[in-house]
């Protein structure tokens, strides 16, 4: 009897949860479907969910009209570039703070986090002017620099929480076993640190890919990553729903897939290790 009740309950929960899940996901699904419609079908009333003439024309159209691929590459270069440079700077710092902490380590970490609290708009004007005067405006290099700086605290925090979990005794064991510092790093530390570094990398690519304050304000036609490119659809051109949808689908698909693979690390990274 009890078993029956719990199965019925499970079915009810399943139906409710799936309904809510699909509702939340619906705008994305709808964008995806619309990207395969003709412009006329995209605004047809009543709208059709699945039964329309599927076409991939919009994707080619978007590319040929606005050189979509260049903006895509801008996004790739800016997000990967800023993340990799950030890692190179952050790994030694996080490492030192995790493995030879001092009384001030906690303060330094909190201070780093506090730089994230400064609203970007507070430094928009000088950044814009500095970039204009040094020719960094609307360049990939400029965006890489800014995104590296704004995500550096998050990278350091994430790495710190991962490194912190590597037990110190294992490193001491390696030392007792006669490993020099370089061998200790190659054979013991790196293999144990790689999962944490990989999650950090993943999360930061997601954050950098979707960053939409500096990319919108510091880029124009040439270096515009997808965030800025898509924003240009807010003009009347945005009424071409099918093409907007195709451009959007391509912009969000890679990150959606990356994000789905790294759900667990997402929580950890975004909460600076406070929730695991």
């Amino acid at each position: 009897m009890a078993r029956n009740v719990s199965t019925r309950r499970k079915v009810v929960v399943t139906v409710v949860a799936w309904t809510i899940g699909i509702l939340i996901f619906f705008p994305i699904l709808w964008t995806f479907l619309t990207s395969f419609k003709s412009e006329a079908e995209a605004i047809a009333s009543p709208p059709s969910l699945l039964f329309f003439d599927w076409t991939t024309e919009n994707y080619f159209e978007v590319q040929s009209r606005s050189n979509y691929f260049r903006h895509f590459m801008n996004s790739v270069v800016v997000s990967f570039g800023s993340t990799l440079i950030g890692l190179v700077i952050a790994i030694p710092s996080a490492w030192a703070m995790a493995f030879s902490p001092t009384k001030r380590t906690k303060d330094v970490l909190m201070w780093m986090l506090s730089t994230k609290m400064m609203p970007s708009v507070g430094v928009l004007v000088p950044m814009y002017l500095m970039f204009r005067n040094t020719g960094l405006l609307d360049t990939r290099t400029g965006l890489v620099i800014v995104l590296t700086l704004i995500n550096l605290p998050i990278i350091i925090w994430m790495l710190y929480t991962y490194f912190k979990e590597i037990p110190g005794e294992i490193l001491e064991a390696a030392r007792m076993d006669g490993a020099s510092l370089s061998k200790e790093i190659i054979y013991v530390l790196t293999p144990m640190a790689i999962p944490g570094i990989a999650s950090t990398l993943l999360l930061n690519i997601i954050l950098a890919w979707n960053e939409a304050f500096w990319t919108l304000n510091l880029s124009a036609a040439k270096a515009a990553p997808l965030t800025a490119f898509i924003a240009s659809y807010s003009s009347p051109e945005g009424l071409f729903y099918a093409k907007l949808s195709a451009a959007s689908t391509m912009a969000i698909a890679p990150i959606l897939i990356l994000g789905w693979f790294s759900q667990k690390q997402l929580v950890r990274g975004l909460t600076f290790g406070a929730v695991k």
Partner: peptide
Amino acid sequence: APFLIMPT
């Protein structure tokens, strides 16, 4: 999913 979508 919505969290992974770029704001624009």
